[in-house]
Amino acid sequence: MRRRPRQSRAQASSQALQDAFVRVLIERGYARTTIREVVAVAGVGVGTFYEYFGNMHALAALCIHQRVKTLESCGRAVIAKNAGAPLDVRVNALLDQQVGDVLIDAPAWAALFQLERQISSPQAFRQQYLRHVGLWHEALRCPGLAQPPPLAARMVHAMVYGWVSQCLLTLGPGVDAASLRQELGRAVLAYVAQLGLGQGRAGVSHYPGQA
């Protein structure tokens, strides 16, 4: 059984390996990424690698899981911060976070999106998917008003994940972030508006940093 990094020093070693893996992945691609190169970049020994990971596949899977988990956790913080705000404000806030947190590290996410289907098991992918659908369900809920249809959160997540991932995979990490966010906002808000869930101020927020 592989060691779980519980203590601070062990966690630092595991995180260093994850960070190094992403750096090498961006530069060389998964097929050319080696354990020796990852540990060299991380500044640890090969033995340390095998304390935590059985192989490169296990390290790649953890990197994807941790990034997606952090994205979800930050999204829940945004929902909590905007609790009680009009529906469109909540939706725009979550869009800003979900898109912004990915595009601020676009090269890494582009590489991980490309790798995701090869690495993540169907069960892991399903769990990640359902957590993000749940995130959008919370954002769309309007206490005291009509609640979102069962498939609404799935549709919004599909729009967000599909648009962002496909833009990164086809256009590359240099994609125009402001245009991507604006077009996605138009599509999502138009869909949400026709659901008739609550009274909000229709409009598309500017991407962070845009006037």
Rank of each mutant, 00 (worst) to 15 (best):
G100P: 03
C167N: 04
D19A: 08
L59H: 05
L130G: 04
E138W: 03
A139P: 09
W109T: 11
D96K: 07
Q166S: 14
R141V: 11
S120C: 11
L17W: 03
P143C: 06
F113L: 05
A93L: 05
R32E: 15
E37Q: 08
Y129N: 15
Q123W: 05
Y207S: 15
G54Q: 05
G144M: 06
A177Q: 07
L17P: 03
P173I: 13
D88V: 01
D19I: 02
N92D: 04
T34C: 02
Q97D: 11
A61K: 11
A85G: 03
T48C: 01
R201Q: 08
C142R: 08
A146M: 04
A42P: 00
S14P: 01
E72T: 12
G144A: 02
A111Q: 12
A40E: 13
P208F: 07
L94F: 00
T70N: 12
S120L: 13
I104D: 07
V44D: 06
I119C: 06
R32K: 13
F53W: 10
A153Q: 07
Q127D: 14
V46S: 08
L168E: 10
Q127V: 15
E72L: 11
G134Q: 01
R2S: 09
G47A: 14
L171W: 03
R154S: 10
A158G: 14
L184I: 00
L115T: 14
R2F: 09
Q114N: 09
V41E: 15
P107T: 03
L115A: 09
A106T: 12
G198I: 01
M1K: 10
N82S: 05
V41N: 03
Y191P: 13
Q123M: 04
I26N: 08
I104M: 12
A158K: 01
F49A: 03
F21A: 09
E51G: 05
Q147H: 11
T70G: 11
